[in-house]
């Protein structure tokens, strides 16, 4: 594979963090540069398609959350997101209502989490990215409404890199590790290895994203189990 960075007329080269990019026929085109990629297979996000969704059982989801919680405990910074009172209120309020069918989640429900917490990409943002990527995949597969993230609104509340990750994730553009977690967990396959593979990412980014995925699946399965999976997950998280 070769990567060719083409400069603009003014001689500037290199991508700026958070810069708008679009996939072009030969690679990536941004405002300041065009990166041509030769020899690489074209990227096709499997989350952009509709798929068969088989929710993991409540016990499996809760076990996954317990696994994440144990790894949060071992993080140098401690369990930042999961011990954040605002996050707990959000999960025990809005998510529980959504899982029970009493609320339809929209972007506004997540705004309070955007920019919340520490890290290069704030913990709240990572959670939102994970949640919306899984939730929207489920919704897309079932022909339901999706959560649409307003770039303008998130950009004013967080760093550009994080805003971009949330927007792309919600549209189904995630990295291979996240894609594997979502597809394995919703495909009836074991996913604890996927969780552990993501765990080492960043300080807690991988944990926050994974937690978002699992809680989205617990909410999504609410129509089938009346919110039992989510309650079990929150109990596992609440230790």
């Amino acid at each position: 594979m070769t990567i060719n960075v083409v400069g603009e007329a003014d001689g500037s080269k290199g991508l700026e963090a958070g810069e708008e990019c679009e996939l072009s026929r030969s690679g990536i085109r941004a405002r300041s540069v065009e990166v041509t990629v030769e020899g690489a297979r074209p990227y096709r996000s499997l989350l952009r398609r509709r798929g068969a969704v088989a929710f993991p059982g409540p016990g499996d989801l809760a076990k996954g959350v317990a696994l994440l919680r144990s790894l949060y405990d071992a993080s140098p910074r401690g369990p930042s997101l999961v011990s954040d009172l605002l996050f707990r209120r959000f999960a025990e309020g809005r998510l529980v209502q959504a899982a029970g069918g009493a609320r339809r989640l929209g972007f506004g429900d997540f705004l309070g989490l955007v920019g919340r917490g520490g890290g290069f990409t704030p913990a709240g943002d990572d959670f939102v990215a994970g949640f919306t990527s899984a939730f929207n995949y489920i919704s897309r597969s079932k022909g339901l409404g999706q959560i649409v993230i307003s770039r303008a609104l998130v950009s004013s509340r967080t760093v550009p890199e994080s805003a971009a990750i949330m927007v792309y994730s919600s549209k189904g553009y995630v990295d291979e590790g996240m894609e594997r977690l979502i597809l394995d967990s919703l495909g009836g396959r074991a996913f604890s290895d996927d969780l552990m593979a993501l765990a080492s990412r960043g300080h807690t980014s991988g944990l926050d994203m994974s937690l978002g995925v699992l809680l989205a699946e617990a909410v999504g399965s609410g129509a089938e189990d009346g919110g039992r999976a989510l309650r079990k997950c929150l109990a596992a998280l609440g230790r």
Binding site: G59, A62, K63, V65, A66, L67, R69, S70, S192, D193, M196, K232, A236
Partner: peptide
């Protein structure tokens, strides 16, 4: 992988 398997067993036994 050894540590992943062991941790999964730990969570099975004590975690959830």
């Amino acid at each position: 992988q050894i540590f992943k398997d062991a941790f999964a067993a730990f969570v099975d036994k004590y975690g959830a």
